[in-house]
Write a protein that binds this DNA or RNA. Structure first.
Lengths: 230, 230
DNA sequence: CAGGGATGTAACCGATTTGTAACCCAGCGC
DNA sequence: GCGCTGGGTTACAAATCGGTTACATCCCTG
């Protein structure tokens, strides 16, 4: 399941160039304005943001500060691309939690490689698992294996919990059964893909009729934790 | 429906040789001048460009830069063929986003194989996970299985979605019924070609009267998602 | 080794999706 | 006008998909 990368870069030529390179390996969406990027970050659920610090409508670093203030931008890893290296800039960037920092001119393959690294570190070593998370009235705290739905305590069995956690961490995205099998059950699992259905059924029941609806079935594809329409 | 490959090669003997080999597997168009190639790339909507870097009227790499500047040239994958390997040339080529790089002399079957690889990677990667796409007010995000037409949410059934996605990805090009059957329904499908008509009908209905019009019937040929006037 | 919880599997059944056939209209050549 | 072809639309039936339950396992713990 390819990762989704969002590119924010004011210069359209550069934007196309970056996007083309990243598209060789990731699913890429791009835009040239900070406010578009906020919108797309919210709508598109990217896994990573590549941010040029010189964007027309807002300084890159201010943008980052704004992004960090939003709930969806909180956990989003960012790689910054700056026109030059300044002590202050680098410091500021790392302060705001960027994962990596590239200075122009750079080898595009290096960018792709760094994206790969950040994504792997973030999502494949399970490092992002563990932080408490709250979406649409459902809260989980993996550290304590606790879950609440609309304020009420819900007890989940281990597999139900792991399933819910993945669904919530990738909220809005459709996760296929094979993907869920691989991530929740582990690659060595021999379980049938129907096992996922059964577990989803149990999870829904445990969450109750209301919160259970958030776990949406996407016909012929898989499942998705979806917030209600706004 | 076979892939369409455009060959740009200055030397006419070489051009014929390349084209003949590629024609065993693809639909090939070829030309010997950069400006012809730009024209053909625009008109013919090829899926892949095989580019000899030594073209009479323009250095291959400059050509590539120009091509990347055009709207139809961004997404077009390119395989470069160079007379010799120079560090600088290779780097420059990859900078401009070529997918692959071959140095003469080479085995023509290798070229065909690489074309196949690039095309597969580019067009046949995961079925439902492509990047978001927005044309003429219709937006789809395969990763989230969402579709909007003129700002309004549209719910599509799996086949309808897959059909719309192909039509949009190849917007402006006429797709035949057999092609759609093969790509959307899958090779093993036994469905009748009329099934496509019915699905198109359902898709149009779902998109609504206005957006539905974008899916055009091309008599005796097939269907086409009309892109905005250029 | 018994008991209990967790979870995979199989079976059943209702819901959804989709192919087919039938009917209709429009365009066209005679 | 008539017959023919191509395509839109609809209704219906078949196939597929997915929810749920019951039951068999497996793995603990005691």
């Amino acid at each position: 399941m390819p990762y989704r990368v969002l590119v924010l870069e004011g210069d359209s030529e550069q934007r196309v160039w970056l996007s083309d390179w990243l598209a060789k390996e990731f699913v890429v969406d791009s835009c040239g304005l900070a406010r578009e990027a906020l919108e797309k970050a919210k709508q598109g659920k990217p896994d990573l943001l590549v941010l040029a610090v010189d964007v027309p409508d807002m300084p890159g670093m201010s943008f980052l500060a704004v992004l960090r203030d939003t709930d969806y931008g909180h956990g989003l890893p960012v790689i910054a691309v700056a026109p030059e290296r300044t002590e202050e800039g680098v410091l500021r960037a790392f302060d705001l939690g960027v994962e990596d920092y590239l200075v122009r001119p750079f080898d595009p393959r290096e960018l792709v490689a760094r994206c790969r690294t950040v994504l792997r570190r973030r999502y494949e070593r399970g490092e992002y698992l563990g932080a408490p998370l709250s979406i649409a009235g459902v809260e989980i705290d993996p550290g304590q294996r606790r879950c609440q739905a609309r304020g009420k305590r819900v007890t989940l069995r281990p597999r139900e919990f792991a399933l819910l956690e993945i669904l919530m961490r990738k909220a809005g995205r459709v996760l296929t059964r094979p993907y869920l099998l691989e991530t929740v059950w582990g690659m060595s699992s021999t379980a049938d893909t129907r096992a996922v259905d059964v577990m989803v059924s149990r999870l829904r029941k445990a969450l109750g009729p209301e919160a259970g609806k958030l776990v949406e079935t996407v016909s012929k594809l898989g499942y998705c934790f979806r917030e209600p329409e706004t």
